[in-house]
Design a protein around this nucleic acid. Structure first.
Lengths: 203, 203, 203, 203
DNA sequence: TTGTAAACGAGACGGTACGTCTCGTCTTAAT
DNA sequence: ATTAAGACGAGACGTACCGTCTCGTTTACAA
């Protein structure tokens, strides 16, 4: 499946152009207007080339985001010893990203696709969600060793405590997404994570 | 906007049939196949009648869900004095609903629409989310009076602590949605909600 | 099937525009470039409207020619008593038409379609060929009564003697199509048609 | 243009396979489905090889027929002294060929191509039509010497008298193509060909 | 005046075939 | 026997239409 696998000879130029076009379009216009035709046009590529390599518009989008993440994103959380502070930093970053219209649109598009296609959901889970979970898990392991996180909370549940409120609020539009809010979420998460006998220990 | 607003002479028979058809179709087939055409056909109504009264497929769906909620749903949380237990009961109910393929499909459809149309999102916020928030707020008020919830956590943030993890997991497909998980979420929420000086009081 | 058949409500405006566009395009460009898309564009009509009413590009063309013939063409041969002269007049007209690039292109297109679709061939036979055959038959009946045509030659064979050489030459490009040639064909046809005992009688 | 022109090193194996595939496909399926792609597949050859040596699908077909004719067809008409009988024999053969679905399809395909490409028409004229015309011309020369054909009818016009009615009827589907019909056409052609002063002489 | 039925313009869909263009491989004829 | 020109298969590519679909609108008729 390497991009230059002889016998397939998939054009890396075209592939890159398609992924880039998909991201750009999803970031700049309502998702229903991000059609395969528009992606093809923007990429200077034929529709047939897209259909040759991807089964659907959503698959292109997911691939595009995965490629971008692989290129640009450094997974890994800060570790200053202060769990609440570290989580607050991360959540402030999330809040800032969600405030960017391009990221907002991109994430909406991605969510729409995963809601309608279980294959894509699995793919997102594997390529986007899991690396983030692992980054959090690494930080939680440190925190657990420092007695800041109880043994009864698994990594997935812990991650949900931290990020789910933010994404829920983003998706519902039920409240404002500020740095102060991010700090509050981090604080509450730490309270919930703390071992029962040593609530919210700060090391 | 009332369904029998005099002067518009909107047919309540048709309206009901359309809303019912929309719900039934959204529950039973992939959402892209829930077309205005299919709703009209199922309702025994012409497309023009739908477009006369609703601007989009999503608006029909939102109206349909709001109507159904107004008819069937009793908002309000149990109050046994045991906050964690009460929340666990509610979350177990949520988990059960999400396990129902019909509800699952319906909620996916609703989410897809709200992600793509801010007007609908506002409408959902007002007609579906807010009543639920108020029901939670009422219960939180009681809990706060009993010293089980700190004054520093507002109702929205509190609600997020309780429900966001569940919906996050549902949407990501990142873990299983069991009663045990619901209990765990309730427990962690209560730890986070508890006043700092009296962690996780059980009244 | 009438164009204003209640219950179908076919738009006569669109129908006319489509037929006109088809004729114009077939007359002015190579037939492979007369696509359904181009007809729709020229007619200011959507492709779906064409496919709603005709099964193929060729069917549109045949309909268009039939409509034009029904409107413009006066079937019927001259009858001066001089069969050879009358036939020569008709053939000179045919030759002139075939020299017109628009008619040439149109007839090529029609022939291409009938060669590839037996349904269309039948339709052409019924709506275009048969009226012409009947017009010839009427003239031959007069000629037969005048002893200029033998009883052993049926109308179809007689018509073939008159027109087939011209169309054959047109199609093969095997020779020039002049008035002199038309006269020669008429003369030879009359010799072949004449009763055996009274060759080529002139009345 | 010889197939083994040194310096081109055209593969005679491929060439033969392509021509054979083209004929076979044109004989067995509707002509629109005789694509370059299908010819290449049938011949076990790449599309590029076809486009390297022929400009179009039609050119392959014409070449294929020319090659087949050069190999299989003995031009030349019988000469028993009885012109009408000899022509009838030839026309019966034509009628029999046209009744063969494979030949029918092949001839339709050839005609479609010549109607849309003047280059191919010229090629067909030179490689297929002209040899036949010459064969007829040779027989007519004998007949003319025998006083069976007038000096005022040139060879091309004479050939048209004989074959055009048959092809016209074949193309229009206007009547049945039987041996009796073939005999009638031959008879009428001879009447038309006969010198004016000695109608339909039989030698 | 509604609502229904269905046709309409618009345009995306997923796909086929076109004709062009690399790729490596293999043939072939002249060294 | 070696070599180099170039024909070969494979198949990806951009282009252009195909015939179908859904959308949201419009029109004509029926109640």
């Amino acid at each position: 499946m390497s991009p230059d696998d002889p016998g397939r000879r998939r054009s890396s130029r075209s592939t890159a152009a398609i992924l880039e076009a998909a991201l750009a379009l999803a970031a700049e216009r309502p998702y229903p207007q991000v059609t395969v035709e528009s992606i093809a046009a923007r990429a200077g590529v034929s529709k047939a080339t897209i259909y040759r390599w991807w089964p659907s518009r959503g698959a292109v989008l997911v691939d595009a985001l995965a490629a971008r993440n692989a290129r640009d994103v450094a997974y890994g959380l800060p570790d200053t010893g202060d769990l609440r502070g570290d989580l607050a930093v991360v959540l402030r970053g999330v809040v800032d990203e969600l405030a960017d219209p391009a990221w907002d649109a991109l994430l909406r598009a991605l969510t729409v696709e995963t809601l309608q296609d279980d294959t894509l959901r699995s793919q997102v889970l594997a390529t986007i969600f899991t690396p983030q979970l692992e980054a959090f898990a690494a930080r939680f392991a440190v925190a657990r060793a420092a007695g800041q996180v109880g043994d009864d909370v698994d990594d997935l549940a812990a991650l949900e405590l931290v990020v789910a409120p933010v994404f829920h609020r983003w998706q519902q539009g039920s409240g404002s997404l500020t740095h102060a809010y991010a700090d509050g979420v981090a604080a509450r998460a730490c309270r919930a994570l703390a071992p029962a006998d040593r609530p919210d220990a700060e090391g």
